[in-house]
Structures are given as C-alpha cells and as structure tokens.
Design a protein around this nucleic acid. Sequence first.
DNA 1: GTCTATATCCAGATAGAC
DNA 2: GTCTATCTGGATATAGAC
Lengths: 202, 202
Amino acid sequence: MPRSKKLSDAMKEERREKILKGALRLFATRGLAGTKISDIAMETGMAQGLVYHYYRSKDDIYTDLISTAFEKLTYACRELEKLPLSPAEKIQRALEGLIKSFWHNNHTAFNYLLIAQATATDTLPEKLKKSIHRQNKLPYSVIEDIIKKGQKDDMVWEGDPQQLAILFWSIIKGLAIHRSSHKDTTIEPDIHAIKRMFLKRI
Amino acid sequence: MPRSKKLSDAMKEERREKILKGALRLFATRGLAGTKISDIAMETGMAQGLVYHYYRSKDDIYTDLISTAFEKLTYACRELEKLPLSPAEKIQRALEGLIKSFWHNNHTAFNYLLIAQATATDTLPEKLKKSIHRQNKLPYSVIEDIIKKGQKDDMVWEGDPQQLAILFWSIIKGLAIHRSSHKDTTIEPDIHAIKRMFLKRI
DNA sequence: GTCTATATCCAGATAGAC
DNA sequence: GTCTATCTGGATATAGAC
C-alpha cells in the first residue's frame, strides 16, 4: 500500500516540522546546551520520550535547524544577486526585507539569532562547526560584492567593502538579538538610519 | 594577626580574579549551561574541585561576571553623560571608545557579548534576571537622551530617539559577537560608517 | 504512535587526604 | 590551599506496555 505509506510519511514529516518550530525559539535563545529535550517536548505538547521517535538525538534537531537556517539565508543571497536592481537598490531591498521579516515573523529573527549563536560558540559537534564555517562565508561575500559595485556607481559611501559587509551583518545580528528578546516591541527600527550608513542618496 | 589575614585575603581575591578572567570568555561564547566548571578550572590551570574553594557554585561565578559587566557599563554611561561635550561629540566618543576597546582588549568585547547573551536568555536564576532587566535600561535611556539633545541642535538625524538608541546598542552587540568569534581579524570596523547613521555632519 | 518507567551517563558539588 | 575520589541529581536516551 504505497498510498498509506506516503500518508504516514507526510504525517511524520508534519510532526517533525512541529518539533522544529518549537525547538527553534528555545535553541536560539538558550543555546544547544541550555535547551532540554523535555523543554522541546513540552513546547510541542508531547511526551519527552516521543521526541526520540522523530529524532535520534538533540544534536540532530539542532543540526536540522542550522541546515534550514543556512539554506534559507543562502537562497535569499542568491536571489538578491539575481534581482534586476542597482547595487544601491539591492542594499535597500535586503535591509528592508530582513527587518520587515524580523518584525513580522518572529521565527525569522530566531533563525538569525540561531546563526549568530552558532557562529560564536566553539562547543558544537566538529562536523557541524565545519559546515557552519563554510556556509557563513557566502552572505558576507555577496554583500561585499554589492557594496563594491555600488561604490563604483558612486551610490555607496567609500570605505573597505569587507568591513562594510561585516558591519551590515553585525547590525542584522544585533537586531535579531533585540527582536528575539523584546517580542512586545512592535515598532520597527528606522531603516532610513541604517541606509544612511551605506547609501549616499537615500 | 591582621596583617597575614589581609595578605591571604588579597591572594584569595587574586585567585578569584583569575577564575573570572578565564570564565568570562567561556560564559560569553558558550553561555551559562554550555560552560562546565571543569572548563573553567582547566582554563585557569587548577583542579576542578579547587574552584569551589573560591566560589560556592557555577551560578555565583556567572552572577559575579554579570555584575562586573553591568557596573562597568553603568559607570561608562554616567561618565559619558558628564563629559563636557556636545551631544554629537558624545555619540562619536561613545562609538570610538567602545569599538577601540573591543579591538584592543578582547575581554571588553566578551563583556558585551555576555550582556547580550544574558539579556536574550530566559533560563537564568530569577534574581539575576530581574537585576539584569533593571540594569539594562540605563544605557538605552542615556543614548536616547543624547540623541534627543543632538536632534535639537540639528546635529543628529531626525527619527524616533528610542528606536535610534536601540539601533545604537544593536550595532554594538552585533560587533561584540563578531569580534568575539573572529579574534584574528585585526582591522577595526569603519567608525565613519556608523557615525553616518546618527550624525548629520561627520 | 504515544505514553511511562528506567538505564546510563555526565556534570555540579562535597569529602577528606596531604 | 590544593589535590583526588566520590556522592548526587538531573538530563539524554532506551525499553517496553498500551
């Protein structure tokens, strides 16, 4: 019976999604070591033991979340590159897209907080650390490249493009931290102010 | 013998300082739960059990570090307020002071990362959480106030001062994360770029 | 598939020799 | 004061009933 097989697979997948959804906030705010399987189980409304029916270990859940977070980030970077926009417009679009998504969907901010957390920690499984280190490079190089081109057009302020890219992602991570710990704050940050940092004409 | 008593107290204090110094980096990068007493002991070059001669618990070490971090931050904020400078100059001074100290002394960046970590986590001892929440307000209000005054002088860009203060500290926290995980990077970030965010004339 | 109960392991904290 | 050895609690992961 391939049909029922497929159905049960779909339901299993759905359950896994539910676990991931609950685990994201916990891992992002408490870290890998600070999050207990029982916390995740409670958040998802299932018994502690049942989590192991869907994931072999806590590390596996964490790894899955990190993968997804980087996949999304990598995808967004490639899309940004391809957009038929000027470098200055791309910077504006990226800032607006990121901040609006942070303030609209909490989980987006948590994804970036998770990445920020993960890159700052040195106690993750070795395999994962390598993978993070590899995938973390693209976002910086994409922004750096856009800044370089924007400077040639005289639309972006002069300055070391690599440093400006670091600044770009530092702001994003800083805002992700803020958003994650102030869920009440409904006012979005001033995107104009951030744009002034990079763009000559805003 | 009050003299030998004093001497042994001084040595005890010295040992405690050594523990704190080693624990700071670990707690900042790995969090409270992710840091083991044995890690701290190894970092300090002493046996695991000996740590308990100087601190009653892991939480106590963490609490001590948080206290110190906030004391320094609070002190710096009050000093900044008192300085005989214009609002615009104060913003510049604060940015330069913070970033230069991050890139000159690693431990300064770790102090800010520790604060960023602590404010984003919800699993700390209740007493500590309250204390952090209370002490975390001053830095925002001080910067907000300076921005307000700078806007009256037409030296700071218009925009909600509270939001701009949030942006200010988000950048600082973002840079603290970056600095803490890239000890090799020797180039300081572009302070001019950050100044453009706030100041009309730079 | 879901639960409860339990085995196992590991880290925080303590005891006691030197 | 410093160490090694140990107690203890709690969290991961497993076993087995339903």
